[in-house]
Structures are given as C-alpha cells and as structure tokens.
Nucleic acid binder design. Structure first.
Length: 414
RNA sequence: GCGACUAUGGUGUAACGGUUAACACUGGGGCUUGUGGAGCCCUCAAUCAGGGUUCGAUUCCCUGUAGUCGCCCCA
C-alpha cells in the first residue's frame, strides 16, 4: 500500500483557492492602481538570484543568507537563493542600466518572496510584497512622495487615518545626535539596535547607559528646525498627511542599508498591533555594482499583513467577488452536451462569459448549481430547442424569461 | 534556535477511563422522467504516529510529527 500524499501545502506556504485568489487579486490590483496613479512603472525579475547578491555586505548578511533563506547549489555549481527581498534586485537592475535610465526612476513590483524561518502570524515562508522605489532624487521631496504613496495605498483600500499610524525617523539625524553626545560609530550602531527593541524591553535606560558609559539623557522625539527629518515631516504636513504622522525614535528598521529617513506604518487596532509596512532611504546600495552611487528611497508591503489589516478593519466586505460565468448553458442530458458547447461558443464570441454544465445532474439541480456559483443567466438546451432553434434565456434573480433565436438572445445581453 | 498551547470525518464541534465515537454543515443519492432556491428521507466519511499505565484509552503519561501563538530575527 502506497503512502497517501498530504493535501496540505508546504510548510509556511499557502494555497490560493478561488475565494483566496479573489482577495489576492483585489489586493494586487489596488496596489498596482495606486502605484501607477503616482506614475510608477512596473518591473519584475526572476525569483532566483546568485547568493552573493545578499551576502555582499558583511558577516551578518552572510549569516542571514545561510540561516534564513532558501539557498542551494545548482547543476552548474552556482550558489543560488530564492529572493528574500526585492531591494537588492532592483538596485542591481538600476545599476545595470544606469546610463540608459532617465532619472528620477519610479518603479514598482509585486514579487513573490521566500524566507526560511518558523511561520507565525503575519510572517510565512512565502509571501508577495508591493515594492516601490524611487532612484536618483536626493531631495527630501522624494521621501515625502514615497511616504505619501504608502499612505495612499492604505487609503485606496478604504482605510481611515485612525486605522494606522506612520512612524518616521532619520538614522542620519540620530547618528548626528549620538556623535554630539560623544559616542563613537560602534556605540551609535549599538544604540540603533537598542532603539529598535525599545518598545519590547523594560530596562531601556539601563541598557543605554551600558552602551554609552554614562546616563542617556537625549530627547529623540523632537527633530530640531533645519534638520532633514523636520523638513520631511513639514513636507508631509503640507501635502495633507498630518493626523497619523509621528516621529518615533524607536523606528530604525533592522536592515543596515538604510542611511537616512526610515518609516514604518503600524496598525492601530489592538487586535492586530503590528507593523504593516516599512521603508526608507538608502543612499549607497547601487554602489555595490560600481560607479557613482545612486540614491534610492523605497518601501515594501506584504500581502499577508495587508490581508490581516483588511480583515481586522472589515475592509474586504463587498469588495471581493469570485469570477463566475455570466451565463450557464444547461444541456437536458449528456446527448445535448456538444450542442450546448456550440451555443456557448456563440455567446463567448460575443464576449459573454459562458460555461456549460457538463455534469450528469438533473436539470433542477443544474439550475440550483448555476445560481449557487453566482451565474446571472441560464439557457436550457434540449431536443425541443434544437429542433425549433428557439431558446429560452432565464434571468435567475428575477425568474424572467426571454425567448428567441441565439442571435436575438445575444443581442439582448449586449 | 528557544518556549507555551493544541491535535476527533472534507469543515466546525461533542463524547465522568467503559457509547455502535454523537451533532451540524459540506459532498453523493432520492421524494420530483425538461425549469431552481424550501422541506423531508437515505448515504459516504474521523480519534495524527509510536510506545506506556489500565481488565479497558478519543480521554491519563512519554516520545515523535504537524499546526497555532510568542521569543530570537526581521528583508
């Protein structure tokens, strides 16, 4: 006896049954529409990348690739990785075409990403992410525009300002303050990591003193007039993003390629109190590929957390429908199946979504089934109809019927 | 990598250590041989795996496996 295969999807991945796929499509379409509303162009690349793309900057990245990615050797002895994020890829693509591109470049993508880790709420081994990046603008206006885009993405789903909070910070500003306070580079870096954990720990002051060697007394919540962070906040307020914007010292983002502005959008609901998306400015990433550095500013937003957010705030109600045929052609019995297909073809040629019920059910059941799947119209095909060539088109919701030839019925629907 | 919790038909639940493992939904069929949504009837289908305690284990214990939620990490 052979062992039966499991019907479960692989650990940490999802199956998208039609109901899930309908939600997924709605999310992707809303993402794409919003990005394009801001003038962004869509791009994509292979999910496979050479592993060194993710290892290139230091031992910590090396460890991350080894422990938290799907990495393997191909048949040509090359080490490859299923992409865990999109930023290195887009930096590679921009760097590769730097002479051909007309900056500023505004690009977006909805890549499938993989990471090897223990699945938990909001974090699976596979997910899709909206990635938006702007390259070639050093001015704070790029930061403002990117955060505005992130804000509008959530608004496009019908979210209210009170549903989320934008937390913003600037690593260069923090580093400047730390420098003035007398910390060296290493201490500053440790302080960034500590700030990242600030919300989760209780002994922040103690830990900070340990790193700094003296009591930590800085006020990190109020950027002074003239600082970059101040200008970004001011810019955002000028374009109308005020209510849910907050400077937050503990928002630093884990990844070390961020150099200046960093931001994170949090769900304000107590039942889903987590980060929805985040991003920031990285001024040197394309430098890995040689040539002059091109500055970039971008963010990513995952479909898993997006769906959690939409469900938490009841923003999916009535927005999502599965794709049902408009018309179902119902043969009385199997001998009429091909005749039914022939009729269906005529409707399809008129761009009416049409399916034929090829089951062995009785006609009553076929009608029930057509209604259950959301079909609007039915057309029964039997001996009487094929002889007379006069058919009856029934509207399920109203029970009203229209008689006529196929071409007359098509005309009545178009 | 660490910790807590959970594991019964396809789904959601039930069963003082002793039942024929129950109920609902779903699926299949019928009442009803060509026009539906209701109702009624019939029917398919389960104790995660392995060990232990016990006269007897779905129930208690151990191990494994899987899942969920946290921690670590967060792209």
């Amino acid at each position: 006896m052979e062992k039966k295969l499991s019907t479960e999807s692989y650990k940490g991945t999802r199956d998208f049954y039609p109901e899930d796929m309908a939600i997924q499509r709605y999310i992707f379409e809303t993402w794409a529409k919003t990005a394009e509303l801001f003038g962004f162009e869509r791009y994509d690349a292979s999910i496979l990348e050479p592993s060194e793309l993710y290892k290139s900057k230091g031992a910590e990245n090396e460890e991350m690739v080894r422990e938290q990615t799907y990495t393997f050797i191909d048949r040509g002895d090359r080490e490859v990785t299923l992409r865990p994020e999109m930023t290195p890829t887009v930096a590679r693509m921009v760097a590769g075409k730097r002479r051909d591109l007309n900056f500023p470049v505004r690009w977006y993508s909805i890549p499938n990403l993989f990471r090897y880790e223990r699945p938990q709420r909001g974090r699976l081994r596979e997910h899709w992410q909206l990635n938006c990046d702007m390259f070639g603008v050093d001015d704070i206006s790029a930061d403002v525009e990117m955060i505005a885009l992130a804000y509008n993405v959530l608004k496009a789903f019908g979210a209210k300002d009170s549903d989320f909070e934008i937390r913003i910070n600037d690593r260069s500003w923090l580093n400047g303050i730390f420098g003035d306070f007398g910390l060296n580079q290493d201490q500053s870096k440790q302080m960034l990591t500590l700030l990242d954990r600030k919300e989760k720990i209780t002994n922040f002051d103690e830990e900070a003193e340990k790193i700094c060697g003296k009591p930590f007394i800085l006020d990190l919540e109020e950027p002074e007039n003239g600082s970059r962070l101040y200008d970004v906040c001011k810019g955002l307020q000028e374009i109308g993003i005020i209510k849910n914007l907050k400077v937050s010292a503990s928002t630093v983002r884990g990844f070390n390629y961020y150099t200046s502005t960093v931001f994170e959008i949090f769900d304000t609901s107590p039942t889903n109190n987590r980060s929805l998306m985040g991003g920031g400015r990285y001024d040197n990433l394309t430098g890995l590929f040689g040539g002059d550095p091109i500055s970039g500013m971008g963010f990513g937003l995952g479909d898993v957390t997006m769906r959690d957010f939409l469900e938490t705030h009841n923003l999916l109600d009535g927005k999502v429908s599965i794709t049902a045929p408009t018309l179902m052609v119902l043969p009385i019995d199997a001998s009429q199946n091909i005749e039914a297909e022939k009729i269906a073809m005529a409707f399809r040629n008129a761009h009416i979504r049409t399916a034929v019920d090829l089951s062995d059910k009785k006609i009553g059941k076929k009608i029930s089934h057509a209604d259950e799947v959301g079909t609007s119209y039915i057309l029964v095909v039997g001996a009487d109809e094929t002889v007379s060539q006069i058919f009856t088109l029934k509207t399920l919701a109203t029970k009203s019927e229209t008689k006529g030839t196929i071409s007359e019925l098509i005309a009545s629907l178009t």
